[in-house]
């Protein structure tokens, strides 16, 4: 059998799969929380589809964690960071008041009884989302293309699906649950652009 004489073409780096992006997000949470915030325990990972949720009462939702499991969670705060490049998407950190305060206290190294201003809590959530997205960008996206990140911003606290879901992670902290959701962002392209 004749051997190929021409060199094998070097394959271009490919975008990470949805599952790989969620893997990176999981590692980011482990690193960021262990280094700067405190303990958290992953209670659910959902690849592909985001958890189904139904509003139970004002500010609370029931997360369907698949396999028959569910968890009630307050969703009063949301911090979002978008990334753009060969893949456009966003990371959303959604949680309730108590868990948001726990994350802020961890980042600020505050005692449990130290008062926290609303802007401190929102700023801390934004920083958390920023560090997690920065990790994904550095570890998973930058090796395959040129990406940029938005400045983190506060969302409405309600799920805002902007494109196909990639996956989600749900964690428990001393202050309650938080959810991280990765979605592709569907951008309207200029015709012919």
């Amino acid at each position: 059998m004749a051997e190929r004489s021409e060199p094998l073409a070097q394959s271009a780096p490919t975008l990470p799969s949805d599952r790989e992006l969620v893997d990176h997000l999981e590692r980011a949470v482990a690193e960021v929380f262990a280094t700067m915030i405190g303990e958290c325990e992953r209670i659910a990972r959902l690849d592909g589809a985001l958890p189904g949720e139904a509003t139970r009462e004002e500010g609370r939702v029931e997360l369907d964690l698949h396999a028959g499991a569910s968890a009630a969670m307050s969703v009063e705060r949301e911090a979002v960071v978008e990334f753009r490049g060969p893949l456009d998407g966003r990371l959303s950190l959604r949680t309730g008041e108590q868990c948001a305060s726990a994350i802020a206290r961890g980042l600020l190294m505050s005692a449990p009884d130290d008062p926290l201003a609303r802007e401190d809590v929102e700023d801390a959530l934004k920083e958390c989302a920023n560090m997690l997205t920065g990790w994904i960008k550095s570890q998973a996206l930058d090796p395959v293309g040129s990406f940029s990140m938005s400045v983190p911003f506060i969302g409405a606290g309600q799920r805002e699906l902007v494109g196909p879901p990639l996956g989600a992670l749900v964690y428990r902290t001393s202050g309650g649950l938080f959810a991280l959701e990765l979605t592709r962002r569907e951008l309207r392209r200029e015709a012919g652009g």
Partner: peptide, 24 residues
């Protein structure tokens, strides 16, 4: 943040002395 490395490299080229990445 980890993802800001491209801008950080520009800062180092312009005369920044070092860097720290978040989380730190």
């Amino acid at each position: 943040t980890e993802g800001g490395e491209a801008m950080m490299k520009s800062a180092l080229d312009l005369g920044a002395n070092g860097y720290v990445t978040k989380p730190f």
